[in-house]
């Protein structure tokens, strides 16, 4: 029985015109709040995470819609990154970590024993806080995922995937003439877009971003934010951020975490203008955190 998680991603036929349109629009608070949310892509139910004896996450239940940017916000150590890492089972790589509860992707429990985390991670890409390109060429960086998953059978196919991914990541024009120079030689912002290109080269359905702009300057940050906004058309994006303004700019949904618990979740506009919880208000107005 073939799991639904591993079906081939739907043909991405969304026109380039809308991409170009969003590119020119500067994101502003609530700009996309009215955009229709996609169907629920990931549903977490009572998820708790333990690092050894220490519980880092307490019974988090959260629904994440497709084709939407969901921001996870909260003070340091609140469990938002931990929650993010449960969605591609990266916590498995830390010895002594235990996850309880259900995380369903398209209705399928990703913690099920039948699910291979290696295949899951091909469906759920991840971008880290610090740009971490491999110390190889730009081309090899992007081609790495398709290569290990066997997505391209010829050199021509691979070239096409690399070009398409770099274009989608908005990096093609800057690196087209030096694809074979080292990826580590790019600037921080370019490296982060390279890493995003690497993640989307395997056509994932979900992209997790763990504070992708915290090591970047404002101009590089703006570029990445634009890119996130474009990528929303194709992917389900979950982003952890420390920047309130960034959450407001790029996300349609926001979830506020505090002390390992999910305090509040809702449309970004609502969270930022009219939060239900006192703690949320205190945090977004900068009274703590």
């Amino acid at each position: 029985m073939k799991s639904r998680i591993f079906r081939a991603p739907e043909g991405s036929s969304t026109g380039g015109a809308s991409e170009a349109a969003t590119l020119s629009t500067a994101p502003a608070v609530g700009a996309h709040a009215s955009a229709p949310l996609g169907p629920i892509k990931i549903a977490a139910r009572d998820v708790s995470v333990f690092y050894g004896e220490k519980q880092a996450l307490f019974d988090v239940s959260l629904e994440i819609p497709d084709k939407t940017v969901t921001a996870l916000i909260g003070p340091s150590g609140c469990g938002k990154s931990t929650f993010l890492r449960t969605m591609n089972r990266m916590n498995d790589t830390i010895p002594g970590t235990r996850v309880t509860g259900r995380i369903e992707m398209d209705g399928e429990d990703i913690n099920d024993r039948k699910i291979d985390p290696v295949l899951l991670r091909a469906q759920v890409g991840m971008v880290f806080q610090k740009p971490n390109p491999f110390p190889k060429s730009i081309y090899e960086n992007v081609a790495y995922g398709p290569k290990i998953h066997g997505l391209a059978s010829t050199k021509g196919e691979m070239d096409e995937i690399v070009q398409k991914s770099l274009k989608r990541a908005g990096l093609w024009d800057e690196v087209a003439d030096r694809l074979h120079s080292p990826g580590t030689g790019l600037s921080g912002g370019q490296q982060q877009r390279l890493v995003i290109a690497r993640a989307i080269a395997v056509e994932p359905e979900v992209i997790l971003m763990d504070e992708p702009c915290s090591a970047l300057d404002p101009i590089a940050t703006a570029k990445i934010e634009e890119l996130i906004d474009e990528l929303r058309e194709r992917y389900c994006i979950v982003i952890v951020t420390h920047s309130m303004a960034q959450a407001a700019r790029v996300s349609q949904r926001t979830a506020f975490f505090h002390m390992g618990k999910l305090v509040e979740t809702g449309d970004t506009e609502e969270i930022f203008t009219n939060p239900r919880e006192r703690r949320t208000l205190d945090y977004i107005t900068g009274r703590f955190g």
Binding site: N88, M90, T93, V118, L119, L120, R121, A122, G125, M126, F128, K130, N132, P133, F134, P135, Y144, G145, I148, H149, V195, R198, A199, V202
Partner: peptide
């Protein structure tokens, strides 16, 4: 070896051996 390289490869769906 910086752990970021390990994370990068694992997050790309590389197996532990890869």
């Amino acid at each position: 070896v910086p752990p970021s390289i390990r994370e990068a490869a694992l997050a790309m769906g590389a197996s532990r051996t890869q």
